[in-house]
């Protein structure tokens, strides 16, 4: 049962129905996060957040899909979710140990531990995790940790009518995804590619446990083109800090030393 699990979200199969969004809210019993009309195509969810753990992006482009005869236009959908990065910024920055890596290799925020320091929020390269001011804790997709414990599929993947969201063992998902891209490319869909499927393709996170098949630049979907978790470069900061600390110490000692001289002069 345990072992690395994740999502493969194939946007070429997504029909933008938002079943994933609602199934997630239903299972996790999340509240709504405002009834606001945005003017952004059919996307009134806008982004992932403390109360929204699945978000379907709607992109209207004046560009045709290479396999579609529908004029100079296409409408892309993509169901975004926490990526459960192999190296996760939120996890590594969490000072309380509220965020842990589970036996399924997913990243889980323990709501009974989180003290709402907010540090994970500025450490997520995908803008996923967030805090609701009234609640004070950080929240995000749990990969349905509770369901996985019972060998159940996460709510979003289970609900997805078109198998755009596939849940499974990561190894299998990666194979499936590669076969899928090949098939699509053979069928003429040259623009299809995988996003974050492994460490090689996304060294900054060492790969995503929830990865995607996309049809346009990541930016179009509001995904970073080359994300890196901060902790990956933190060594340099510490070195720099050591230097700075030494500098202050030196300055302090120097001040004390020179003050003696000054006293004499």
């Amino acid at each position: 049962m345990a072992g690395a699990k994740g999502f493969f979200t194939d946007t070429t199969l997504c029909i933008g129905c938002k079943a994933c969004e609602v199934a997630c809210k239903q299972w996790n019993q999340l509240p709504d996060d405002g009834l606001l009309f945005t003017g952004m195509s059919y996307d009134n969810t806008v982004h992932l957040g403390a109360s929204t753990w699945r978000h379907v992006a709607f992109i209207e482009r004046p560009v045709p899909l290479s396999t579609q005869d529908a004029g100079a236009f296409s409408w892309l959908f993509s169901s975004d979710v926490c990526k459960h990065c192999v190296r996760a910024g939120c996890l590594e920055s969490c000072p309380t140990g509220a965020i842990i890596r589970t036996e399924f290799d997913s990243v889980y925020v323990q709501p009974d531990i989180c003290n709402g320091c907010g540090y994970c929020i500025v450490n997520c390269p995908f803008g996923v995790i967030d805090r609701r001011s009234e609640d004070g804790r950080a929240w995000k997709c749990t990969l349905c940790y509770d369901r996985l414990r019972e060998d159940m599929t996460p709510a979003c993947a289970k609900a997805c009518p078109t198998e755009s969201i596939v849940f499974g063992d990561l190894d299998e998902l990666r194979t499936r995804a590669r076969v899928r891209v090949e098939k699509l490319q053979d069928a003429g869909m040259r623009e299809a590619y995988l996003y974050g499927e492994d460490a090689a393709s996304q060294p900054g996170t060492e790969g995503l446990n929830a990865f995607f098949l996309l049809l346009d630049k990541p930016e179009v979907y509001n995904l970073p083109p080359d994300p890196a978790i901060p902790t990956k470069g933190v060594g340099r900061s510490w070195i720099s800090m050591a230097a700075a600390a030494a500098g202050i110490a030196l300055m302090a000692v120097g001040s004390v030393f020179f003050s003696k001289l000054g006293g004499r002069s």
């Binding site: 129905c17 938002k18 079943a19 969004e21 609602v22 199934a23 239903q26 299972w27 599929t153 709510a155 289970k158 609900a159 997805c160 009518p161």
Partner: peptide
């Protein structure tokens, strides 16, 4: 405590659309 799709159904195989997924509410 929960309402979700029935995987045994040959029609839906456990899936639900957003409305169906909101049945609990």
């Amino acid at each position: 405590i929960d309402i979700e799709g029935d995987p045994a159904s040959p029609i839906s195989r456990g899936c639900l659309c957003p409305k169906g997924a909101a049945t609990f509410q």
